[in-house]
Amino acid sequence: MLNISERKLLTLIFLILIVVLGLDIVDDLNEGASLSHVVKEVLVMVLGTLGVLVLWNKYLKAKSKVRDIQVNIEKLKEDLSHYKEETQHLSQGIGQKINDQLERWSLTKSEKDIALLLLKGLSVREISEIRSSSEKTIKQHCSNLYQKANIKGRSELSAFFLEDILVLDL
């Protein structure tokens, strides 16, 4: 899409072309040029004028869409901010409950960190990169924490904390 300065330059070129063609048509008529020649030049002038109008019409529509999108973005930002304000105490409460449970399972600091990263949905590879550890080491920490928590794996870890949060109306 053309920026405003490119659009203005293109419009200026079209307008100059239209004026020059208009003057040429007047000269041709005064000099007795054939009707078919004059009609062709009028057609070129009309097409140039239509080109300018189409160009600006598309620009104005695009500008309107951008304005609508910006309004929508601002609305979404406000909604997100409002949601965060409303749920901040809940997420802090949930975070504290998760930490309390991890303490009850007597997890090491590393196991707690890995458990939180697993709950956030990170893969073993991603966790190993974040912690600058081998995947084997992360897998061993996972096994230890699953054993201490008496669960079978990542999905049960997530389910343990989500079970009481998610209420399903069946």
Rank of each mutant, 00 (worst) to 15 (best):
E103W: 02
A115H: 10
I165F: 12
G51K: 08
S133W: 14
N72R: 11
V66R: 10
I13Y: 05
Y146W: 14
R67N: 14
I4A: 01
A159K: 13
V42W: 13
L76Q: 05
H141N: 09
L162C: 10
Y146M: 10
Q88C: 08
L47R: 01
L47S: 02
I16G: 00
L53D: 00
S81C: 04
L166C: 04
I69E: 07
S143I: 06
R104A: 00
I130Y: 09
E31V: 07
L17H: 03
A33S: 14
I138F: 09
D164E: 15
Q140R: 13
L12K: 15
L55P: 08
L145K: 07
S64E: 07
Y59S: 01
T11I: 05
S110K: 08
L102V: 14
A62D: 10
R7I: 02
E86W: 10
L118Y: 06
H37G: 05
L90D: 04
M45E: 12
S5C: 00
H37A: 05
L43I: 14
V167L: 15
Y83C: 05
V20I: 14
V54L: 02
L107G: 12
L168C: 08
K136R: 06
L168E: 14
S91Q: 04
A62R: 10
K58W: 10
S158R: 15
I165S: 06
L2K: 02
A115Q: 08
L43P: 10
V66M: 05
K148P: 13
K112H: 00
F160R: 12
V52C: 12
V42D: 12
G153K: 12
I130E: 09
K61P: 00
E78H: 11
K120L: 03
A159Y: 15
L80N: 08
S36K: 05
S128K: 02
I98L: 10
K61V: 01
L119P: 10
D164G: 15
S34I: 13
E163W: 11
D28A: 05
I94Y: 11
V19E: 00
N99A: 03
V44P: 04
W105V: 00
R125V: 08
D169N: 12
L55F: 01
S110F: 03
M1I: 09
I69M: 07
N99I: 04
Q140F: 12
Q70S: 04
H37T: 13
K84I: 14
N150A: 00
I25E: 11
L102M: 15
E111Y: 05
L35N: 11
E6A: 01
L80A: 02
Q88V: 15
K84Y: 13
S36G: 03
R7S: 06
G153Q: 07
S134R: 09
V52H: 03
L145S: 03
R131G: 02
K65A: 07
L76F: 01
A159N: 14
L145G: 05
Y83D: 11
I130K: 07
K40V: 04
G153T: 10
I25M: 10
E103M: 00
I94G: 03
D164R: 15
L21M: 08
V46P: 02
L168R: 13
S81V: 06
G95R: 12
